[in-house]
Write a protein that binds this DNA or RNA. Structure first.
Lengths: 203, 203
DNA sequence: CTACAAAGTAGACGGTGACAACAAAGTTGG
DNA sequence: CCAACTTTGTTGTCACCGTCTACTTTGTAG
């Protein structure tokens, strides 16, 4: 079962169509943006009829939503991996997460845009749930910072939101060619430093 | 000349097609997003044949670029108006510009996205030039802040970029429904405060 | 007044997402 | 073992869209 299709043979059933569609779609998304992603094109690329994708994704949106969902899962993995590699010091952990996030956001620009766009449109509950994980992680980090005394206590949401907004904005500037990609990590570094200086408890 | 078309009459020449297209397109952009903007639809709405828009905009992109260009002009106007109303104190001026920008960015979400997307694609030089104004304004403000001693001297770009990124990110969070719109102005306020605290000269 | 340019019209082409009817290949129960 | 059923893929169709070409109408300048 689940044998990889031998090259040259064209069995009536593709066998991995859903996975193949997602994989090809993600590549297309990266290369041509969301507008350059056509169901018929994907079908052609996978050597399948133009209506075949419909069996797995009733809708173009459904495919995009699925991409967004796996995108959030991947983001969550990336962020947790970044945290796993660091010591316990809050500043270091914050730096690691911030860098990892903006890196993901710039290396998967179209995907990230899709993720946020899909999250809050009707029927995007699955996507929204997938997004919870990443947000929760950032909030935990903020709470840890407050516990360590590195951040002002109270209203953890606002502090976390502003930091998150800054990272998101840096990614937007890079993706929008306002800023060259080489400046990304440097900007993130000074941004988190300034954030720490600006949000630390008053002396 | 340039008489407003009387209701009921359908002169062969529309007379205000270009302006009408831009106006209708901007409304559609606001209501349905860029994907819901169809040239044929606009033509129908203006009671004109499907190929008529082509005389004024050779391309769908040309129409979108024109929208982006006027968008930057409007943004520039909004920002300068916000500055004109304030005293000379740097913190106050910064607050005013920041609030005005994020307000524009959230009230014209699809337009802003279009503006940044159009700016750096091939042939988007006119749009890019239109964008210069707004950027220059922010940079001037930063330089003023440094002159007043409210900001660290040197590398005005990075400080300005980070602030700009934060505002852009706050707008993105509001537009992405991560944050309710009522929180917008409050977030901007604390963000600029933290920015001032984080970027002021070391004592 | 006539030639020409500008602005709008009509029709066609290829591409796309959606849908319906049908066919092939697994799967399952007797 | 085979017949019903479900899953998956195919073919054909429809409406819509952006773009292009050829044509018509209108305004204008020589």
């Amino acid at each position: 079962m689940c044998r990889v299709p031998e090259t040259g043979e064209r069995p009536y059933h593709h066998g991995h169509l859903r996975a193949g569609l997602l994989q090809a779609a993600e590549r297309r998304l990266r290369e041509d943006g969301v507008d350059g992603l056509s169901l018929r094109d994907l079908a052609r690329e996978l050597g399948v009829s133009h209506a075949a994708p419909r069996r797995h994704f009733p809708d173009r949106r459904a495919l995009l939503d699925a991409l967004a969902e796996t995108g959030f899962a991947r983001l969550d993995t990336v962020l947790r991996a970044a945290l796993a590699d660091t010591a316990d010091d809050f500043a270091v952990r914050l730096q690691a997460v911030a860098t990892a996030y903006t890196r993901f956001a710039t290396e998967n620009a179209a995907l990230l845009e899709l993720m946020f766009r899909s999250k809050h449109r009707p029927g995007g509950e699955r996507v929204a749930r997938a997004a919870e994980g990443a947000f929760a992680l950032v909030n935990e980090l903020i709470v840890q910072g407050q516990a360590e005394g590195a951040l002002q206590a109270g209203e953890p949401e606002q502090a976390g939101l502003i930091l998150f907004a800054t990272l998101q904005g840096i990614a937007a500037l890079v993706n929008g060619d306002v800023v060259p990609p080489e400046m990304r990590d440097g900007l993130v570094e000074t941004a988190t430093e300034q954030f720490l200086r600006g949000a630390r408890p008053l002396p």
